[in-house]
Amino acid sequence: MSVDQNTVRHIARLARIAVTDEEVAPLAKELSSILDWVEQLGEVNTDNVEPMASVENLALPMREDVVTDGNIQDQVTKNAPGADDGFFAVPKVVE
Protein backbone atom coordinates (compact mmCIF):
# COMPACT_ATOMS: atom_id res chain seq x y z
CA MET A 1 0.00 0.00 0.00
CA SER A 2 1.55 3.25 -1.13
CA VAL A 3 -0.54 5.43 1.17
CA ASP A 4 -0.69 4.63 4.87
CA GLN A 5 -3.12 6.00 7.39
CA ASN A 6 -0.76 8.69 8.66
CA THR A 7 -0.30 9.92 5.12
CA VAL A 8 -4.07 10.10 4.69
CA ARG A 9 -4.33 12.20 7.82
CA HIS A 10 -1.49 14.42 6.65
CA ILE A 11 -2.88 15.13 3.20
CA ALA A 12 -6.40 15.55 4.58
CA ARG A 13 -4.95 18.18 6.88
CA LEU A 14 -3.20 19.88 3.95
CA ALA A 15 -6.47 19.81 2.01
CA ARG A 16 -8.42 21.02 5.06
CA ILE A 17 -10.86 18.13 4.99
CA ALA A 18 -11.75 16.61 8.34
CA VAL A 19 -11.57 12.80 8.28
CA THR A 20 -12.98 10.57 10.98
CA ASP A 21 -11.05 7.60 12.31
CA GLU A 22 -13.45 5.28 10.49
CA GLU A 23 -12.79 7.02 7.19
CA VAL A 24 -9.02 6.79 7.31
CA ALA A 25 -8.51 3.07 6.66
CA PRO A 26 -10.81 2.78 3.62
CA LEU A 27 -9.38 6.01 2.22
CA ALA A 28 -5.85 4.67 2.56
CA LYS A 29 -6.92 1.58 0.63
CA GLU A 30 -8.71 3.52 -2.13
CA LEU A 31 -5.99 6.08 -2.60
CA SER A 32 -3.36 3.34 -2.62
CA SER A 33 -5.14 1.37 -5.31
CA ILE A 34 -5.41 4.50 -7.49
CA LEU A 35 -1.77 5.42 -6.93
CA ASP A 36 -0.58 1.85 -7.50
CA TRP A 37 -2.46 1.90 -10.79
CA VAL A 38 -0.87 5.16 -11.96
CA GLU A 39 2.55 3.71 -11.17
CA GLN A 40 2.45 2.12 -14.63
CA LEU A 41 3.55 5.50 -16.00
CA GLY A 42 6.98 4.47 -14.76
CA GLU A 43 7.21 2.13 -17.75
CA VAL A 44 7.48 5.09 -20.12
CA ASN A 45 10.87 6.62 -20.76
CA THR A 46 10.37 10.37 -20.49
CA ASP A 47 14.00 11.38 -20.14
CA ASN A 48 14.11 13.96 -22.90
CA VAL A 49 10.46 14.95 -22.83
CA GLU A 50 9.28 18.40 -21.76
CA PRO A 51 6.26 18.43 -19.47
CA MET A 52 3.29 19.94 -21.29
CA ALA A 53 2.86 23.59 -20.30
CA SER A 54 -0.30 24.29 -22.24
CA VAL A 55 -2.17 22.59 -25.04
CA GLU A 56 -2.00 25.65 -27.25
CA ASN A 57 1.44 26.98 -28.01
CA LEU A 58 0.44 30.56 -27.50
CA ALA A 59 1.74 33.39 -25.39
CA LEU A 60 -0.22 34.72 -22.47
CA PRO A 61 -2.57 37.51 -23.59
CA MET A 62 -2.22 40.76 -21.63
CA ARG A 63 -4.80 43.42 -20.78
CA GLU A 64 -4.33 47.16 -20.49
CA ASP A 65 -3.83 48.81 -17.09
CA VAL A 66 -7.31 50.27 -16.80
CA VAL A 67 -9.69 50.09 -13.85
CA THR A 68 -12.73 48.28 -15.24
CA ASP A 69 -14.02 46.46 -12.19
CA GLY A 70 -14.72 46.74 -8.49
CA ASN A 71 -17.17 48.94 -6.58
CA ILE A 72 -19.49 45.96 -6.27
CA GLN A 73 -19.17 45.35 -2.54
CA ASP A 74 -22.80 44.20 -2.40
CA GLN A 75 -22.20 41.55 -5.07
CA VAL A 76 -18.93 40.45 -3.51
CA THR A 77 -20.47 39.83 -0.09
CA LYS A 78 -23.97 38.88 -1.24
CA ASN A 79 -23.51 35.11 -0.86
CA ALA A 80 -21.33 35.26 2.25
CA PRO A 81 -22.35 33.02 5.17
CA GLY A 82 -20.81 35.65 7.46
CA ALA A 83 -20.53 39.34 6.61
CA ASP A 84 -20.42 42.46 8.74
CA ASP A 85 -20.10 46.10 7.69
CA GLY A 86 -18.83 45.18 4.24
CA PHE A 87 -16.28 42.72 5.65
CA PHE A 88 -16.35 38.94 5.47
CA ALA A 89 -16.56 37.59 9.00
CA VAL A 90 -14.80 34.36 9.98
CA PRO A 91 -13.98 32.64 13.26
CA LYS A 92 -11.10 34.44 14.91
CA VAL A 93 -7.71 33.75 13.39
CA VAL A 94 -4.94 33.47 15.96
CA GLU A 95 -1.43 34.10 14.65
Binding site: G82, D85, F87, F88, A89, V90, P91, K92, E95
Partner: peptide, 12 residues
Protein backbone atom coordinates in the same frame (compact mmCIF):
# COMPACT_ATOMS: atom_id res chain seq x y z
CA UNK B 1 -8.40 40.50 14.40
CA UNK B 2 -9.24 43.19 16.91
CA UNK B 3 -12.71 44.32 15.82
CA UNK B 4 -14.75 41.57 17.44
CA UNK B 5 -14.25 39.21 20.40
CA UNK B 6 -14.66 35.96 18.47
CA UNK B 7 -14.50 36.91 14.79
CA UNK B 8 -11.86 38.12 12.38
CA UNK B 9 -12.92 40.47 9.60
CA UNK B 10 -11.61 40.08 6.08
CA UNK B 11 -11.14 42.89 3.58
CA UNK B 12 -10.01 41.85 0.10
Amino acid sequence: HDQHPSMSFVDL
